[in-house]
Structures are given as structure tokens and as C-alpha cells.
């Protein structure tokens, strides 16, 4: 690593990743809404409990994945090249 690279690294700053913020908000919203949505899904689509529940559970897990990925990518390191 050259001296110039060191300087650039020292000047690196963390910037908020807007896409991750959006991903975080959407994932949390999906996760929370999912906890209340099952009766409406059953009534709206005429589904049995099991038919509505398992897809909903998959959505809950995807919401967790969305939260995890968003949090871990919330800040991007930007350097002054």
C-alpha cells in the first residue's frame, strides 16, 4: 500500500446507504404487518389457516433477512480518491 493509499484510507468516511435505510424500513413494516395480517388474508382470499399461515411465515423470515442485510450494509465506506 502506498503512502497515497494510506492518506485516502485516513480520509475515508462512512456514508448512510439510502437503499439499506429503505430496505430496513420496508422489512420492519412487512414483519410487523404480517403479525396482524392473517385473519384479513383468510377472509380476503377465502384461505384456510394453514394456506394463509405458511406463506406468511416465509414472508416473516424474508423480513428478517431484509433487516439483517440492510443493517449490515447501512453504512458504506467512501474515500476521497
Amino acid at each position: 500500500m502506498s503512502r497515497n493509499d494510506d492518506d485516502n484510507d485516513d480520509l475515508a468516511v462512512y456514508e448512510l446507504n439510502t437503499r439499506s435505510v429503505v430496505g430496513l424500513v420496508v422489512s420492519v413494516a412487512v414483519g410487523v404487518v404480517g403479525l396482524f395480517a392473517l385473519p384479513a388474508l383468510q377472509r380476503g382470499f377465502g384461505l384456510s389457516f394453514q394456506e394463509a399461515f405458511w406463506p406468511l411465515l416465509a414472508v416473516e423470515f424474508l423480513a428478517f433477512v431484509g433487516v439483517a442485510v440492510s443493517v449490515l450494509r447501512l453504512h458504506e465506506k467512501r474515500s476521497f480518491d
Partner: peptide, 25 residues
């Protein structure tokens, strides 16, 4: 990162408890 994750844990759980309280869950 720690704060966001740790805040979300009881936040989601609160929504879950509310859902169970109202009978949705």
C-alpha cells in the same frame, strides 16, 4: 448496528404481543 438490531428485537416482539392480545395471532 448493535443499537438498531437490539431496538428492533423488543419492537417486533411488542407488535407480536399486541397481535396476540387482540386475537389476530
Amino acid at each position: 448496528e448493535f443499537y438498531i438490531i437490539t431496538i428492533l428485537i423488543p419492537g417486533i416482539a411488542a407488535a407480536s404481543y399486541l397481535s396476540m392480545f387482540f386475537g389476530f395471532g
